[in-house]
Nucleic acid binder design. Sequence first.
DNA 1: GCCAACGTTGGC
DNA 2: GCCAACGTTGGC
Length: 159
Amino acid sequence: MATKYWLMKTEPTTYSIDDLAKEKKKTTTWEGVRNYQARNLLREEITKGYRWLFYHSACKEPAVAGLAVVTREGYPDFFAFDPDSKYFDAKSKEDKPTWFMVDVKLEEKFAYPVTLSELREQKGLKDMVLLQKGSRLSVQPVKKAEFDKIVKLASKKSG
DNA sequence: GCCAACGTTGGC
DNA sequence: GCCAACGTTGGC
């Protein structure tokens, strides 16, 4: 059974959950993933309806900022074909794309983000890919129990 | 800004 | 196909 829960990283200075909240229909393309392992996950594992933990990385307070849902399964990252895009990659051809992306919609912005240090405090989350040493993958599978736990933590903080 | 961990590149 | 050098990620 394929996992239906994922975590995606983004640097809030590049693209934050507030940026997503401002989008038309709160939906955006998730382009610019330039790592083969993450690409394979986008292309082969992730499909419409799967849910994401929206994670802010490389910032003051790394944290799960909210929840999102995939609205379109993996398709060629057309930003790679555009020489004016910062994600341009001459090696990726339209008839044989190297890179893939999905579309994603905001479900919920947490009133109180669940910070990385809080995640580390949770016994039940020890095995999360995110918390493993040297884990840099920007697209990560998450177990249902882990996903549920983090949602619960967020609601506890706001309540 | 530092630096550990990891991925990619390229010479051989 | 090995592996050193280099580049990137991302927490601290």
